[in-house]
Amino acid sequence: MPDIYTPDLMEVVNVRKQTPDVKSVRIQFQNKARASQFDFRVGQFGIFSAFGSGESTFNICSSSNWKDSLEFCFRKVGRVTEALWRVEEGDTIGFRGPYGNGYPVEKWEGKNLIFLGGGIAMPPIRCAVWYALENREKYGNITVVYGARTVADLVYVDELAEWAKRDRVRVIQCVDPGGQTSDWKGEVGFVPTVFERAKVAAENSVALVIGPPIMIKNTLPVLEKLGMGPDSIYTSLENRMKCGVGKCGRCNAGPVYVCKEGPVFTMEQLQKLPQDY
């Protein structure tokens, strides 16, 4: 009997180099029976592994409506991601999951959605954007503000352009001052300032803010000024994890296990937690 730590074997069906150090990888279950049972919620995460190098935790950044495959996206920073960087189509990698709570997409129905992301935080936003677009009638206006350090660091740029063509969708791309190229058509500035300048109407909205701690910290006052309460602002934590199933004891932020009760929290929930993440 396979135990909870034995991964499913996945075939790599597509690899895309997003930036000089970020790749997205699309995978499929080798066991077809397993594939047909598999289901997840957008916002959940998986534990992906390169055999011989180990496991690493990433958001499942494909929409839960895409039944044939899963996608994840990572930056090459360590032992596991270096090994994953080398995988090619047809290779086998490991996957455990889905884990965590995911986004409360039912609760978001009937609302306008504001997505604010920085750098490598696009993937966990991307799955939610696609999900909303695929259930377009259930959601109001969609605003995406996405920034990275330089133009070269933006991921999923083709999809950003694709979203912008859709009805009731506004996509704003920005790069940090100095990170723009001569032909850059987006904004220059940090996500919080660019978002403030964009004067997005925030009535009946929920916001999903994911990015480096400093970006989140500076974005919150802007959202507050727009009248958004901490119960309508969501984020996804990325504490270090090993087991994903509430046993290995390292991902807690104060009393909550991020792998079980998270990774998605409202700011209201986070404000009640001690500074432990």
Binding site: Y5, G54, E55, C248, R250
Partner: peptide, 24 residues
């Protein structure tokens, strides 16, 4: 105390995934 770590030990042909004690 029961915290643990999960690591791979081996090479590109064969090896094992193990769990070892870890400490906060």
């Amino acid at each position: 105390c029961h915290c643990f770590d999960i690591v791979d030990e081996g090479n590109s042909q064969h090896g094992k995934r193990v769990r070892n004690w870890d400490s906060c």
